[in-house]
């Protein structure tokens, strides 16, 4: 295999070497595969949820965010938010929600690619999946902040509720409501996928680094 491409995708495993130590080469592929499945499953599980409790809502109000949609008492919460001039939740992160499933599928394919790239550049392919949980939380914070700080100054309660940054994780409060926000299982699955990918790279390096070194030595020698 020629120079640049060869350096990029790294050395191939000679068949006799693979049959001699099959698990060494199978392990990173398996772990990456598991990470991809876990990431894919996370699409169907909530990433974040918030419960709002007030005296007149003894059952509480719930907001549940999947990577691609919002469910729960969105209508009721929007109705209450209009008093303080907050924009409807449906307007938040519209692009992200529309793109998230495609993004996750792209990450799925990239991590699959990483299993075939046997050089250090494989890491590059996995960076989106590894940083995805961090990206989610930053994006969530960005939108919460943007919504909380940009209240309609003409809203009915604009004089009593000043712009604020809602609590993204943990307990917060606004008006008569206490809010309890936490990551959902989907988020933790995304984190697990990121963790698995990092672990996978440990075995990836253990498997392919010696081959790279050998190839390099052979090239020199």
């Amino acid at each position: 295999m020629s120079g640049f491409i060869g350096a990029l995708i790294g050395p191939r495993v000679p068949p006799e070497e693979r049959s001699r130590r099959p698990l060494r080469y199978l392990t990173p592929t398996l772990i990456f595969m598991l990470a991809r499945v876990v990431l894919l499953v996370s699409i169907f599980v909530p990433y974040w949820h918030m419960e709002l409790v007030a005296p007149q809502y003894p059952d509480g109000l719930f907001l549940t965010a999947y990577c691609n949609h919002l469910t729960g008492d969105v209508r009721e919460i929007d109705g209450l938010n209009h008093y303080i001039g907050m924009r409807p939740l449906g307007e938040a992160a519209a692009f992200e929600r529309a793109a998230s499933v495609w993004m996750i599928i792209a990450m799925f394919l990239l991590v699959e690619g990483a299993a075939f790239v046997h050089s250090k550049w494989a890491v590059l392919l996995a960076i989106p999946a590894i940083t995805f949980p961090l990206g989610f939380i930053l994006d969530l914070y960005y939108w919460m902040r943007s919504f909380g700080l940009n209240l309609d100054p003409d809203a009915p309660l604009s004089s009593s509720v000043k712009p604020f940054v809602p609590t993204v994780i943990g307990e917060g409060g606004i008006g008569q409501f206490r809010t309890y926000a936490a990551f959902g299982a989907g988020y933790w699955l995304a984190c697990l996928a990121a963790g698995l990918i990092i672990v996978g790279f440990f075995f990836h390096r253990r498997a392919y680094r010696p081959l790279t070194l050998r190839a390099r030595a052979e090239a020199k020698g």
Binding site: V45, H49, T64, G72, G184, A185
Partner: peptide, 9 residues
């Protein structure tokens, strides 16, 4: 997945 608060929510 089992521990997800999704069902409760």
């Amino acid at each position: 997945v089992a521990a997800t608060p999704h069902a409760e929510a």
